[in-house]
Design a protein around this nucleic acid. Structure first.
Length: 587
DNA sequence: GATGACTGCCC
DNA sequence: ATTCTGC
DNA sequence: GCAGAATGGGCAGTCATC
């Protein structure tokens, strides 16, 4: 046996290429970290090679990053459209990849959030996580933080390298996610780092979203916008754009098909001047949107965000099996009910619709049923362009009555008003008002569907804390913690936070807050309880999060009560009463 | 084994 | 989910 | 009026840590 100096990584890489050299070392028993040390390659690249990625050659990531910079630099949407359109026409990358790189959509479920980014930036910059987080609070956005604290390297990253590294993250343990991200960030220039962070968080902050991209693509490929929009709702934007780049005829071939989820149509808030009679009015149920697809004996269920729920809601699958059609797509609301079939509060429903797997115990505790209100596909035929008045009879012939949303036709404002009052008095969330001649437009929010909700009671509460905002509102207050009083205990109890406060109002409030600061902590200022606001809400929920034991669902400020003092705000007892009166109506 | 941070997804 | 804001 | 940005409550599930 002779002692031979083992070949260096350089020698190996020259002989068999970087990827093979890495895999060779792994094969002969080197650990990942040892390969990193031996090869001098960044961690993420070793991981990619380990995962059998052959080549990382593609466009330089720095070019993409400067394109992002140009996009975020121009203000007007028209200008953004033009830039995007030119980018798409250039075909420097496959069209669907370009679209994905502009929406960041494929990077939305990486298991990466602010916490992971904070730790990755800390590791890459050798700052402490606390200091990184402090910068985040100051600047409001982690992309900017990356730009500030990364030292910047000039070793060339490719688009493919970044893309694949990010897509790899969900399969790694959290610790390794941080290592891969930090490796990318250490290899990147500061500008690149900014966009790697934003891609990983699934939000590029370029000042445009899917709709602008869609318009740009329709120009770039010279296709009809409606056609592209339709195809996008069914196939997703990236695929629709790829088809558009082949030719408009490809878009015409895209049709609704049971088993393939599409983005549901949405409603605007009710506005009197938007009502076009005759209308169909329906009860609005407080549940979750659910799309039921039936293809022979097979049933598929999808949520509003197209998450498949077929395995989690077997009762609904059973209900769909009973539909009087071989193939259909039915749009409905899934709601939680007690054992007598009476609606339960929304909170209970979450225990059934959020889990990813079925558990019979939960199913027994919270039962569900559906209320169907539309049908968009029936026995091999798409009903998208069939008017609502013709869809309703088909729906009624397919779905048994107990699973149909209650509704009727109205021809005058008076009838709508009456229907609404009745629905509210029966404890429903409100009503839907839909133009009878409206077609079903997937993925769009249109004024042909309107939702009308009652004004709820209001509560006078006191502001006990103001929280710092993020993004554009970094360094300013953005939401307020509210409390009610208990006269017996002479104490205040928190009931939730409100946001959506206009700059104007916040400016005025800030002047008063500045006089009332008790102390500052990391996420805001604690206040002497003096400022009284009147808030409304959609519902009062039980909550372990707030000291009152209750929380407001969808709270909003009605007005500031300068005429009231803390001693005059509403009491915990009143909250309890309001809560009880809600549940009484429901059961 | 309990607890808490973090993420994703319902509204 | 809602609300505010710039275009 | 549209599109975008920023914000609310709450539950499940995963993973790290105590």
């Amino acid at each position: 046996m002779s002692l031979v100096r083992p070949p260096s990584f350089r020698e190996l890489a020259e002989r068999m290429g970087e990827a093979e050299a890495v895999r060779y070392l792994l094969r002969i028993g080197y650990g990942t970290m040892k390969v990193v040390a031996e090869s001098g390659l960044p961690y993420h690249r070793v991981i990619l090679y380990r995962e059998r990625v052959k080549s990382l050659k593609s466009m330089e990531f720095s070019r993409l990053a400067s394109f992002y910079e140009r996009l975020s630099g121009v203000r007007s949407r028209k200008a953004k459209e033009a830039l995007i359109s030119r980018f798409l026409s250039s075909r420097v990358l496959p069209v669907d990849v370009m679209v994905n790189l502009l929406t960041a959509k494929p990077f939305k479920n990486l298991g990466v959030g602010p916490g992971t980014i904070r730790d990755s930036l800390a590791l890459a910059s050798r700052w402490s996580p606390e200091r990184v987080e402090a910068l985040y609070r100051e600047y409001g956005e982690y992309g900017e933080v990356a730009y500030l604290i990364l030292r910047g390297s000039s070793s060339p990253l490719t688009v493919k390298e970044v893309y694949l590294s990010l897509k790899l993250l969900p399969r790694l343990a959290r610790e390794d996610r941080v290592k891969v991200l930090s490796s990318l960030l250490s290899t990147a220039s500061r500008i690149e780092g900014k966009y790697i962070v934003r891609l990983a968080l699934g939000d590029l902050k370029l000042g445009f979203k899917e709709n602008t991209l869609l318009i740009a693509a329709s120009k770039a490929f010279n296709v009809d916008r409606q056609l592209l929009e339709n195809a996008s709702a069914i196939k997703g934007l990236a695929e629709a754009c790829r088809l558009a780049s082949i030719g408009e005829y490809m878009l015409r071939l895209v049709e609704l098909k049971p088993g393939v989820p599409f983005k549901p149509m949405l409603a605007h808030l009710y506005r009197e001047d938007k009502v076009k009679f005759p209308v169909r009015v329906e009860l609005k149920y407080d549940g979750s949107r659910l799309q039921i697809h039936k293809i022979g004996g097979k049933v598929k269920l999808y949520t509003r965000r197209l998450v498949e729920k077929s395995d989690v809601l077997p009762e609904v699958v059973e209900i769909a099996r009973g539909f009087n059609a071989d193939s259909c797509i039915v749009d409905c609301e899934v709601i939680a009910v007690d054992d007598k079939g009476n609606p339960l509060p929304f909170q209970y429903l979450l225990e059934r619709t959020l889990p990813r797997k079925y558990e019979s115990e939960r199913a027994e505790k919270v039962r569900v049923t559906v209320k169907a209100f539309d049908i968009v596909y029936h026995e091999g035929r798409s009903l998208l362009s069939t008017p609502l008045q013709e869809r309703i009879p088909i729906l009624m012939s397919v779905v048994p009555k107990e699973f149909l949303a209650e509704g009727e036709t109205c021809t005058t404002p008076g009838e709508v008003e009456k229907y609404f009052k009745d629905a509210v008095s029966r404890g429903y969330e409100g009503i839907m008002v839909k133009a009878l001649d409206s077609i079903y437009e997937p993925g769009r929010r249109t004024y042909t569907w309107l939702k009308l909700k009652p004004l709820r009671d209001t509560i006078d509460a006191v502001v006990v804390k103001a929280y710092y905002g993020t993004g554009l509102r970094a360094g300013y207050y953005s939401s307020l913690l509210l409390a009610v009083r208990d006269p017996k205990a002479r104490k205040l109890y928190t009931i939730g936070r409100v946001s959506n406060i206009s700059e104007d109002l916040m400016d005025r409030l800030k002047k008063r807050f500045d006089q009332l600061i008790v102390r500052r902590d990391r996420d805001g200022i604690v206040l002497k309880p003096e400022v009284v606001v009147e808030v409304t809400y959609m519902e009062i929920q039980r909550s372990p999060e707030y000291s009152s034991g209750y929380a407001l669902r969808v709270p909003k400020i009605v007005r500031v009560r300068n005429d009231k003092t803390v001693g005059e705000i509403d009491t915990l007892d009143k909250i309890r009463e309001l809560y009880m009166s809600q549940s009484a109506v429901k059961s």
